[in-house]
Design a protein around this nucleic acid. Structure first.
Lengths: 155, 155
DNA sequence: TTATTATATAATAATCATTTTCGTTCTTTT
DNA sequence: AAAAGAACGAAAATGATTATTATATAATAA
């Protein structure tokens, strides 16, 4: 945890920014919720628990800064709010998501899986790929199970 | 064009809705701009040219309805506005996009390209895929050429 | 150490896309 | 024709995000 923050501190310094207490508090919240997909408001409320004097605008500014530096990724699942994900260290590319259209759960896929597809796109469309966003919409395992149970009860 | 509208009319009827003049005008605009990625505001302004009495809320309502019926797809490129794409007839899946991070142009890829990836995801994550969103961020051919020219001039 | 400058902040107001409300109109049903 | 329902336009409301402004903090120069 601490060493992770140290490295982020260095990244900020390299880019000419400082790790202020507010920024550190924000990063800590993101680290403690790596599995979740927090909105700016979510982050704000969580940071506020530890540092009540922080302002919402500061959280927005910090998240924007971290996004610029590619420390976090900004995602949009179409529900009207942007969500922020800490990028896995060493990850060159953005990870993928599985969004369940029934329960709304969001799972992550760290594997790349797109190497071949990207080769084809770069070749056939002469497009130099820098990053990607891939989200699958469907039904998660848990919800599939629920359906199976319901079927069994009917029979 | 007309037969396309007829089929959309049928789709609406099947779902218990009517193709009102406002809805038809909106669909026509979408048909006439299939290549573009119009925002609700864009659609509104274009519909207004032909049907000046239409209201913005109606356009929003219509686009939402068409999205529900999977006649159009709602996309979000992260610029703060939702964009609406008429879904290609017979297309089971949402098409992909190439967004140029320099000039902002958006190209479409109709090919699926994800069959294999989806097989892997369904098998390994036990996730039943219903649809997908894939966007590549990078540099389009035109912008790459510009860079090459600049390089040549320096030499 | 003090003065100067730049940077970051909190609080608030402003903005912009989208949604809701509400009174009206147009259809369909009775 | 009356009643009920769907769809509409205009305007108000909402909610996420951004800009403003005055204040504080840190970095640097004197």
């Amino acid at each position: 945890m601490e060493d992770r923050i140290d490295r982020i501190k260095k990244q900020l310094h390299t880019a000419g920014y400082k790790l202020t207490p507010q920024r550190e508090a924000t990063v800590r919240v993101l680290l403690e919720h790596e599995e979740d997909h927090l909105s700016a408001e979510d982050v704000y409320l969580l940071v506020k628990e530890k540092s009540p004097e922080i302002g919402l605008a500061t959280v927005y500014r910090t998240l924007e800064l971290l996004t610029e530096l590619k420390i976090v990724d900004k995602i949009n699942f179409g529900d009207g709010v942007s969500r922020y994900d800490l990028r896995k260290e060493g990850a060159a590319h953005f990870h993928h998501h599985l969004v369940c259209i029934e329960c709304g759960s969001v799972a992550e896929i760290q594997e790349d899986l797109l190497e071949e597809v990207e080769e084809i796109v770069e070749r056939d469309w002469k497009f130099k790929i820098k990053d990607h966003r891939l989200t699958f919409h469907g039904i998660c395992y848990r919800c599939q199970q629920k359906h199976a149970e319901e079927q069994n009860q009917k029979e």
